[in-house]
């Protein structure tokens, strides 16, 4: 009862923050509101017992993303100019897409039902196995690091690729500019 009340309050605040993000024209405000959104989302995750995901959401969504977005705003300027065109077609597209997504949730199993397909596939096997062999108590870690080690290796490679990509995009050009300008130097400036 208490939990569902807190959940309702959190989800209401999520909706309010979303509306505020849409209406806000100052991009600095948008970034801060997005950080608040992430923290609210992290609280929702805690309520549904997904503590690992909540931790990731709080640190990545509210922490790192906010900083990177702020750094971007420092480069681009922080005012969003309202569009001069009529926005009927985008509104139509957004309404249809949103409607289709909501329609798509109807055949899904009800939230938290234990008999749904996602809980019947490999999850029971993992739980049983980690119980039998006295695996690390945090099954999430056991699944990520051990049962699905290949997947995690792939995820680490994805992060690596993202980092290399950003560095290529942002750093490569700067060096070229420097070389075109004054006498090229590889100092730290």
């Amino acid at each position: 009862m208490t939990i569902s009340l807190i959940q309702m309050a959190l989800l209401t605040m999520l909706a309010a923050v979303t509306v505020a993000i849409i209406r806000q024209r100052n991009l600095f405000g948008v970034v801060i509101l997005a950080g608040i959104y992430s923290f609210l989302m992290a609280s929702v995750m805690i309520l549904i017992d997904a503590v690992d995901v909540a931790m990731t959401e709080a640190s990545v969504g509210a922490g790192i993303s906010t900083v990177v977005l702020l750094a971007t705003i420092a480069l681009t300027g922080s005012k969003e100019y309202p569009s001069v065109r009529r926005s009927l077609v985008p509104l139509f597209v957004a309404a249809v897409t949103g409607g289709a997504l909501i329609w798509g949730t109807f055949p899904l199993p009800r939230f938290g039902v234990q008999e749904s397909a996602i809980h019947m596939h490999v999850a029971p096997e993992y739980l049983q196995h980690s119980k039998d062999h006295k695996m690390p108590p945090n099954v999430v870690t056991a699944v990520l690091g051990d049962f699905r080690g290949y997947d995690t290796l792939g995820e680490t490679t994805v992060i690596f690729t993202a980092g290399i990509g950003v560095m290529l995009l942002l750093r490569g050009r700067r060096r070229r500019l420097k070389e075109n300008g004054k006498s090229a130097g590889k100092g730290t400036a």
Binding site: I64, V67, V68, A71, T72, A74, L75, I159, F160, A162, G163, V166, M167, L170, R171, R174
Partner: peptide
């Protein structure tokens, strides 16, 4: 290292 490197890259551009 990826997070810090991305931050460095952004901050450098600024």
């Amino acid at each position: 290292s990826t997070m810090v490197a991305i931050f460095y890259a952004f901050a450098d551009r600024g």
